[in-house]
Structures are given as structure tokens and as C-alpha cells.
Design a binder for these strands. Sequence first.
DNA 1: CTACAAATGTTATATTATAACACCTGTTAT
DNA 2: ATAACAGGTGTTATAATATAACATTTGTAG
Lengths: 130, 130
Amino acid sequence: MSQIQILSKNQKIVLKIIEQAKEPLKAYSILFNAQKKGIKAPPQIYRALDKLIQKGKIHKIESRNAFVACKNSKCEISKATAFSICEKCEKVTEINIPKITKVLFAFKDKSGMSCKKYNLELFGLCKKCA
Amino acid sequence: MSQIQILSKNQKIVLKIIEQAKEPLKAYSILFNAQKKGIKAPPQIYRALDKLIQKGKIHKIESRNAFVACKNSKCEISKATAFSICEKCEKVTEINIPKITKVLFAFKDKSGMSCKKYNLELFGLCKKCA
DNA sequence: CTACAAATGTTATATTATAACACCTGTTAT
DNA sequence: ATAACAGGTGTTATAATATAACATTTGTAG
């Protein structure tokens, strides 16, 4: 069991495409890009995406069904994701609010459930669009 | 312009189905239920869902593509949604963490964007499943 | 009673995601 | 070495989620 996360061929292809993009990418747009590299079908993309998420290399923006590379090297971040999203231009920024992480990992809901992982999406207008 | 939110026929049908459910419902499962009431096609459901969200009557659980009724009568809550989700049994509970709301509405990201609305989803195991 | 906004009904289609199966590749255990 | 296994790949088909577009109707305000 290696500590260092080794990526497979398709995982590398998909990660590279996502890293080079300036904005979150949709799965089928990744597929379109990856066709130059010989990837032909959706399951190849979705399988790579799943593994990359598990390995903390990318995140899914749930409200947009889109994927971004993780900027943060800390592995905690894959369990504590937060983004600001401009509702006009759709610019997405990964954010880090330590206080939020602290509060949420300490939180228990009424039924006693505690938080092992969270995803937070903030919406508003970015400086350009405001 | 009425202060009180009046619901149309289809909106009432869809809301009632969601309110009576014990768990978040998917759009096509709502459609299946609503067919008894004469609703026949997806757009009728999706349009009602959109309006009910705007009116703060329901929320979408983004990570599950599912919809729940809002338990909270405060209208703020439609701009500040938070849920705990059991990753095993998929039980979803609407939660309210005032401190989080306070911190987030005060937050600005690096580019100066501030938060007008947020959605937070916490994952873990509920008491039964832990 | 007209004009407008909102809602409805309908068909078709776009978009997002997974099931299922055959095969391959590298590692581990004997 | 080789069997057994875990992870990865390639492929076809299909499921699940969501919207476009258009004609029509309903409710309401002027």
C-alpha cells in the first residue's frame, strides 16, 4: 500500500485536462478533449473522475456538475471542500475558511450525527460582475 | 405584488408529494407520483420545482439530485441551506448552525466576492448506521 | 375587454451518469 | 511459475436527470 498516490494512464490524462482548464469542466467536455488521447467513452472519464476525487486531486462542484483541480496540497481538503461561485460569470474559486472547518467538524446534528466530510458552495457576484 | 406566496395548481401537487415523503425525492419519482393527479411530463415537474425553490418551500440536495420540503418558516433559510446526510442510509436532515450563517455572510473571498446565498452539505454516518 | 405575466400541456431532445461484460496488467502468496 | 486477486481498460448499450421550444390557457391589472 503506497502512501503516495500513483495515477493510472487515464487518470493522468483526465487530471491534466482539468488542471489546464481555467474553469470547472463538465464530464463530456473532458471527454471531448480526451478523445485526442484515445479515450472514447464516458465510463472511461467517469471512472477516472471518481478515482481522482478519492485521491483528493480534483473536486466536484455539485451545483454545476463540473470538476476542478484541487489547488491545495493538504489532504484534509478533500474532506472539506468550499467554493465561491459567481452566479453571473460562473467563475469558481476554491476557498478555505478555517473557522468553518473547525465548527463543522465539531458539530453534531439533533440525531447525533457528526461530520466526516463536507461540501460548501457560496453564491454571489464576483467583483467584475457586481 | 403579493407578499404571501401563492402556489399554482401544479406547484401545490408537487409540494404536497414532497412534504408527505419521508426522504428526499428525485424529480422522476415525483413525476411518477404526480401522474395520478394528471401531470404527464418532466417539464411540468421541473417548472414547479424551480418555483417552489424560489419561493423557499423546498430545497434541492445538490449532491443527490433530490428535493426536500423546507421545515423552516424563516425566509432567510432559502438563501442559507444546510443538511446533514448519512452516507449509508441516505437520511437527510435540515440543520441550522447560526454561527456558520454569520461567518459566511460576513466572508469575502480573495477576489472580493461576498456571499448572498450558500448551500452546505455535511456527510457522515447517522446514529443508526455508525 | 384588453393586454400582460404566469402557468400549463406537449413533443422532442439534450445532458449527465451508470450497468454490464470481456479483457489486460501487475502484484502477492504459495 | 502460476494461480488468484485487485485495479485498470475498452466497449456497447442504456438509465437517469434536465431543458428547449412552441402552442395554449388562466389570472389579474389597467
